[in-house]
Design a binder for these strands. Structure first.
Lengths: 186, 186
DNA sequence: GGTATGTATGTAATATCATAACACGTCAAG
DNA sequence: CTTGACGTGTTATGATATTACATACATACC
């Protein structure tokens, strides 16, 4: 099954083997074949976990797959329901623990604004994501945040504040929703 | 009563009538007399509300005062408990409605990361706050975010994404906690 | 193999945060 | 003095998240 970034699944898949859509910011919202973005992210996660001496257990792997397949932000209970339907535990900690693990390892991110989680499209790389959240279709994209963080760090340093982690989340309209049901009707 | 920005109330009040501490980023975490920052913010809020044809009712005013006095982020239920203790309603909507109103008017901000609310120190001015949240003492300061937002907007525009609102929240250590119980013990 | 240890998972119970829906009160316009 | 808009009070419920404890599984060591 070819998942598309486009939330309405409108538009043909783009089976480009390099799949720039998943990583390149200017394509993050464009429809494209997403399967191997997911496969690739999963493979990299497996490798990193091994390298770090951590363990990619069935629940954790499955949660990561769920996030990767969804290709949008999922609530912990959404994840939990899918796990439960597949025979894993059906109590909140099962989902939260796996999600926490994935976040610690940098394989998933929490979107504060949505109380939701999303798979990281480039695990292992320097991690400083900014999220672009479409208020119309709820799609979420990662944008390069290095310059944003640099600016934030300058502002913070002015107060003597030492930034350790930052959440940068923008709410607005993705390209598709600007053209289509831009008013928020979609 | 002289509230200090310093969470431990350690250090003498600074009754400077201009109270730079409440607005100047390099003083946001410094101990200083906060009373008239609050009074000033409240007065400006009252003026703005009148100007806009909205109504600053007793509950709303009291909630704003509570936030201003606390000078830190308060959960909706913290606010609610105080309201209830003073004879206002004691059900969540009472607090949430007032908080929503204050946020719409730009008199308060929601800190996503903490599920909490904080009074705005400069209502009416251009609104693009970045928040610096101390993970040790939970103090929250607003930092100038214009450059940060500019950087974010550039990143977003690269994806064709139209930013409408942004939450920028940094977690780290405030100056006091870097010196003192910096490890997170405080 | 057997056992100890650390780590992961399963489960119950509960805490915390937030909203929907409806009733009542107040105030100003007509 | 009715009407309509708005704000508040209240009930009930929904959504999100954590604590605490029991069990299972994996690895290292003997």
């Amino acid at each position: 099954m070819a998942h598309l970034h486009d939330p309405a699944n409108a538009g043909p898949a783009n089976p480009d083997p390099a799949c720039p859509g998943c990583a390149a910011p200017d394509l993050a919202f464009a429809p494209h074949d997403h399967d191997h973005c997911a496969a690739d992210a999963l493979a990299r996660a497996e490798a990193l976990v091994a390298e770090r001496g951590a363990r990619m257990t069935p629940v954790r792997r499955r949660v990561l797959e769920i996030l990767l397949e969804a290709h949008r932000a999922l609530g912990a209970y959404d994840v939990l329901n899918r796990l439960a339907a597949e025979g894993f535990g059906n109590q909140p900690p099962v989902a939260y623990r796996a999600l926490d693990f994935l976040e610690e390892q940098g394989f998933a991110h929490r979107i504060q604004r949505l109380n939701a989680f999303t798979a990281c499209m480039h695990p292992g790389e320097a991690h400083a994501p900014a999220f672009l959240i479409c208020r119309s279709c709820n799609a979420v994209a990662e944008a390069p945040a290095a310059p944003v963080l640099a600016a934030l760090d300058r502002a913070a340093t002015g107060s003597g504040f030492a930034v350790e982690r930052a959440s940068i989340e923008a709410l607005g309209l993705c390209p598709g929703c600007q053209r289509g049901g831009a008013g928020g009707s979609a």
